[in-house]
Amino acid sequence: MSLSATTPVTGAPARPFLRHLERAGLYLALSVAAFLSVFPFLWMLVSATNSSGEIIRGKLGLGDQFWINLDNFMTQVDLPLVMWNSAKVAVLSTVLTIAVSSLAGYGFEMFRSKMRERLYSLVLLTLMVPFAALMIPLFMMIGQAGLINTHIAILLPSIASAFIIFYFRQATKAFPTELRDAARVDGLKEWQIFLFIYVPVMRSTYAAAFVIVFMTSWNNYLWPLIVLQSNETKTITLVVSALASAYYPDFGVVMIGTILATLPTLIVFFVMQRQFVAGMLGSVK
């Protein structure tokens, strides 16, 4: 005689109908949430195949205007140049931000000092200051430095990111101090410990930070709008925005621009998806 045949089922009595209903409700709510999230993206893809007039009329089906829209876009925009500008700014900004902020996060966590927490609090306080409040003094500083219309004007203010410093410090709490001790006994200097032990061990944290900073930097609009005034330096977000704010905007062309502006961030996210999730959960297991 099997155990399952003789053992009475304990706990709440099974109520399959209620359980199915509960599950159905859950799936419905999740489906609505998923639809609301994905719809703008789908709408963007579909609209890129329609003419501006069809988009304004609210057409939701696929059209035959894609190649025309693309051709119009390519004639209006120097795509290689704006993509290069965006890529240059995003990659440099990401690499520099991560390099500086991870060093700061490592330092804040690893080195004991009386001033450590006070200094760290000051860094965190900068998170409370809205960018709108910084814009004008920052613009004046950049202007006085003669950096208007240069990509350095975008890179400089973004390098030391309080949020990424915070993120790295929190992640560093899980970095075993005994690894650092072992490395010191093995003869490594502090910078070597950082480079040869910390960075490889924390690679998931770096990957997650890369995704976050790259997306933020690629999608950055307001500050580039203020400091990049010549067409030669403009990034894709500025160009798409300019297309949309024309006197008679061609929304089909705008949608092509939006797709092209979205593609790199999508690629980065999908390529680094696993590392991103691991990094958000913590590098050190």
């Binding site: 005994e178 690894l179 490395a183 006994v185 003869g187 490594l188 032990i197 061990v201 690679r203």
Partner: peptide, 20 residues
């Protein structure tokens, strides 16, 4: 003297092996 120059080697409680 730097730890690496003391002629010592250390075994840690948590092993402290480099995971990568």
């Amino acid at each position: 003297v730097d730890p690496s120059q003391r002629g010592i080697a250390m075994v840690f409680q948590s092993y402290a092996l480099y995971p990568h």
